[in-house]
């Protein structure tokens, strides 16, 4: 109040090691990049759907492309960050809904953990079972 800006100050310092050389920030930067890579995954799926709509030849062509060494490398580039993203997102995400909304009681962290990771496992199993043809 009384003394605000009354003596010259040195401009605020950026945290040491921002933004890649410190472990904590590196982890966060990875997360930020992973969340960009989600879209890359979406794009690949979009190409897949496009191939699917053009007929079985196009589909086979798409599969051949993704089965090539470059295609598999791309999948590694997408899948590893996506899985990292999924775990961190769902883990940190339990914080957010723990709030009383209107008349509903606030859900607890434990319940949300179960819900989040249960959903991940359930949806993944469902996708794998349906797409692998085990469940017709």
């Amino acid at each position: 109040m009384g003394s605000a800006s009354s003596t010259p100050t040195l401009a605020s310092r950026v945290p040491d090691g921002w933004w890649m050389s410190h472990k904590r920030y590196r982890y966060y930067m990875l997360f930020a990049m992973a969340s960009g890579i989600l879209s890359l995954g979406s794009l690949v799926l979009l190409v897949a759907v496009s191939a699917l709509s053009k007929g079985s030849q196009a589909w086979a062509g798409f599969l051949a492309m993704l089965g090539s060494p470059a295609g598999l490398l791309l999948s590694v580039v997408v899948l590893v960050p996506t899985c990292f993203f999924a775990v961190r997102w769902l883990r940190v995400g339990v914080k957010i809904p723990q709030v009383k909304l209107g008349p509903m009681p606030a859900p607890g962290a434990g319940m949300l953990y179960v819900a989040h990771f249960g959903l991940l496992i359930g949806v993944s199993l469902l996708v794998i079972l349906l797409l692998s043809g085990v469940v017709a």
Partner: peptide, 23 residues
């Protein structure tokens, strides 16, 4: 051990930072 003033605050002196904006 490297001891510096809190990042993201203007530095008043040595390890003392300006807290007015925070208040």
């Amino acid at each position: 051990i490297r001891v510096g003033p809190l990042a993201n605050f203007p530095v008043v002196r040595d390890l003392v930072v300006e807290l007015e904006s925070f208040m």
